[in-house]
Computed example of a mutant assay.
Amino acid sequence: MITHIDHLVLTTRDLDACIDFYTQVLNMELIKFGDNRVAFSFGQHKINVHEYGCEIEPKAHLPVPGSLDICLISHSSTEQIKLHLEATQVEILEEPVTRTGACGPNTSYYLRDPDLNLIEISHYQSSHKTGG
């Protein structure tokens, strides 16, 4: 029945810092739509952004900044990911660690966005099914 994720919603306290992180550190495309809505696009997916206290209805039961824990897949090598993160001067919490993702073993770096959400950037070492 379900084939893939279309979008998810992130709640932020600081829209400008959030935009800077997701566009500069994660290289996502900023999208503005509707009535002053903001989202980040990557591949065939997007992350919609709600400002804390001004969420769009309907919304999660308890939308709070810092509650997101997400794994994002990169086609860049683990070495390229590390060089990019170092160039953006973002703090790397764990590097590189082997995990098991939806498509098998991968290598991940962990960091936090400005709202302290946990961001895992992962690279699959071998070919894998991408879904869709």
Rank of each mutant, 00 (worst) to 15 (best):
I81N: 11
I81S: 07
H123M: 07
D115P: 01
G53T: 04
N27L: 08
H75D: 15
Y124L: 09
A39V: 00
C71W: 05
E86K: 11
T11P: 02
A17I: 09
D35W: 11
L83M: 13
E94K: 08
D35I: 12
P58S: 09
A39P: 00
S41Q: 15
K82P: 05
G66S: 05
S74M: 01
A60W: 08
T78P: 07
G131S: 11
D35C: 03
P105H: 02
D115V: 01
E57C: 00
A39M: 06
V90K: 10
T3E: 14
E95I: 00
L62R: 13
A87K: 09
H123G: 15
V49G: 15
E55P: 03
H4C: 01
G34Q: 05
H4T: 05
F33N: 10
L116D: 14
Q80F: 04
E86Q: 14
L118T: 04
S67C: 04
Q125I: 03
P96C: 08
I119H: 02
E120F: 01
K59A: 14
D20Y: 07
V38N: 08
N48M: 05
D14I: 02
E29P: 07
S76E: 15
N36K: 06
N106E: 14
E79D: 11
K46G: 08
L68I: 01
N36W: 12
L93F: 07
C103S: 14
T88Y: 03
P105V: 00
D113C: 05
T98W: 00
F40P: 04
I73V: 11
V38M: 08
G104T: 01
D35M: 15
R99T: 04
V90A: 15
K59L: 02
I19Q: 10
A102K: 02
D115N: 11
T107G: 08
N48C: 00
M1I: 04
G34K: 04
C54T: 14
P58N: 08
Q44F: 02
Q24R: 15
C71I: 05
Y52R: 04
D35P: 06
S127C: 10
D14Q: 05
E55G: 11
S122A: 05
E29I: 00
K129Q: 15
K46T: 05
E94Q: 13
L30P: 10
T23L: 00
H123S: 10
T98L: 02
N48L: 02
G43Y: 00
V25Y: 02
S67Y: 00
V38C: 13
L83R: 15
G53W: 04
I5A: 13
S127M: 03
F42Y: 12
L72C: 07
A102L: 03
E79K: 14
V90Y: 00
C18A: 15
I73S: 14
R37I: 01
P96W: 03
Y52C: 06
I56R: 12
E86C: 06
P96Y: 06
T78A: 13
N36D: 13
C18N: 12
I70V: 12
Q44M: 06
V97I: 10
